[in-house]
Amino acid sequence: MTSLRYSLAALALIGATHSAVAADNLDIIVPFAAGGATDIVARSFEPIFSQQLGVTSVVRNVAGASATVGTAEVANSEGNPNIIGYEPAGALSIQPSLKKLPYGPDSFTYICRTVSNPMFLMVSKSSDIESFKQLVEESQEYPFLYGSSGPGTLPHLAMAALTVNSDLKAEHVPYSGSGPAMNALAGNEIQIMADTETILENYDLRPLAVFAENRVEGYPDVPTMQELGLAEMDFAVWQGVVAPKGISEERTQQYAEACKATVESDKFKSFADKAKADIAYLGPDEFKAFVQKRFAANKQVLKDAGLTP
């Protein structure tokens, strides 16, 4: 009985020390469950980043509602210099236009963009469609179905923008993630999908076009949307670091420098190479401008496609 009491006391002590130390700990919020694609990058980013900053950091997964729950937690910690979020594109640049959230694009101090991968328009290799022109022609008779990793995600938005800006006739079928969507593509339940190079390579798909300004290295034969005579469409899957509003200029600078040093470190580079994430660093001001531009562009797409009033 006494031993039990001692262990309870020890437990209480551990709890107390934890909360005492917690003040100097840096919380890195990842708005997805542990083990997801974003989480993996964040967890590789975290040790190098905290070393640069000279603090102890903890990755905290706060998942749910298309990554907005974790993002909201960062936004709500106004003035707290010990919390940052490792954020995906959707939570920052799409979700605020889709639903009522406790944050908007102006609720953060932007630190840096870490990686960015352009999206490709792709079809299954078993289909006989070789070009975008052929895709458009065949869709006239019977509209195609395109998949996405969920409503309001980047794959959805990119395709919605494409159907609005071209003669392609296609309808949306959302899945609960890229995996199930790929299963559906393999079973010919859907015919088209827009996603990144990782998906393209892993599942042996055929790229028809790329949603980027310029052609992408490694895919010299894949045309951009502009080359196909369409309006400029720029869709990429990116990630970045944000802090709450109201932190000091000095702290922002510290974060930004640590972030820059992290993405330029060999360790992170070799990881990014393995995970096929293209490092695309942007500093605080550029990142802020970038998010605001993407936010406005995505808002327009949602409106044009009839997804928001």
């Binding site: 083990g35 997801g36 694609a37 989480d39 993996i40 967890r43 590789s44 990782t198 390579e201 892993n202 599942y203 042996d204 990881f271 393995k274 995970a275 096929k276």
Partner: peptide, 12 residues
């Protein structure tokens, strides 16, 4: 995810 960290890319 753990495989990706170790450089194994699951896929076809």
């Amino acid at each position: 995810g753990a495989m990706v960290i170790h450089g194994i890319t699951p896929g076809v």
